[in-house]
Computed example of a mutant assay.
Amino acid sequence: MTNPRGRVNYEPNSWGATLGGPREDTVRGFRSFAEEADGAKLRIRPESFADHYSQARQFYVSQEPIEQKHIADALVFELSKVERPDIRARVVSHLINIDDGLAGTVADGLGLPELPAPAQAAQPTRSDLPPSDALSIVKNGPPSFKGRKLGILLSDGADAALFGGLVKALDKVGAVYDVIAPKIGGVTLDDGTKVAAKQKIDGGPSVLFDAVAIVVSADGAALLADDAATQDFVRDAFGHCKYIGLTLDAQPIFANAGILEKLDDACIELGAAKDAVAFVDTIAALRFWPRELKVDMDAK
Rank of each mutant, 00 (worst) to 15 (best):
A221I: 13
L223T: 10
L208T: 03
V215I: 12
T193A: 13
A211V: 10
A221M: 13
D226W: 08
D219C: 09
G204K: 04
V207E: 13
G220I: 11
V216D: 01
F209C: 09
A196I: 07
A197I: 11
V207A: 15
S217N: 02
A221W: 01
A222R: 11
A196R: 05
L189S: 14
D190I: 12
L224S: 05
K200G: 03
V187Y: 12
L224G: 00
V187C: 15
L189K: 12
K198W: 05
D227V: 04
D227K: 00
L224F: 03
K200F: 03
A213E: 04
L208M: 00
G192N: 09
D202A: 14
V187M: 13
A222Y: 07
D190P: 04
D219E: 15
D227L: 00
G192Y: 11
A197W: 00
A222M: 13
F209H: 13
V195N: 09
A218Q: 07
K194Y: 05
V195E: 08
L208C: 03
G203A: 12
F209R: 04
D227S: 02
L189E: 04
L189W: 10
D219H: 07
D219K: 15
Q199T: 00
L208H: 05
L223A: 14
V207M: 02
D190C: 07
D191V: 07
G203D: 10
V212C: 05
I201D: 01
D210A: 13
K198A: 14
T188P: 01
V216K: 01
V216P: 00
V215E: 00
V207H: 09
T188Q: 14
D226V: 04
D226C: 01
P205G: 10
A211S: 15
S217R: 10
D226F: 11
T188V: 15
D202V: 01
D219N: 13
A225W: 06
D210N: 15
S217K: 01
G203R: 02
A221L: 12
A197E: 07
Q199M: 01
I214G: 06
A197L: 05
L189F: 08
A196E: 06
V216F: 01
K200Y: 04
D210P: 11
V212A: 13
L224T: 06
P205W: 05
T193C: 03
V187P: 14
K200T: 08
A218T: 05
G204N: 03
S206A: 14
F209D: 00
Q199R: 12
V195T: 08
S206C: 09
A213L: 11
T188Y: 11
A211F: 10
I201H: 02
S206W: 06
L208P: 06
A225D: 06
V215P: 07
T188K: 15
K200W: 06
K194S: 14
D202T: 08
D226M: 12
I214P: 08
L224I: 09
S217W: 03
G204Y: 02
K200H: 00
A218G: 02
L189V: 14
F209L: 09
P205S: 10
A211I: 07
P205A: 07
G220Y: 03
P205Q: 06
A213V: 01
A197R: 08
G192S: 06
K194H: 14
T193M: 08
I214V: 15
V207T: 15
D202Q: 14
A213Q: 04
G203C: 01
V215L: 09
S217A: 06
S217F: 03
A196P: 11
F209Y: 15
D210W: 07
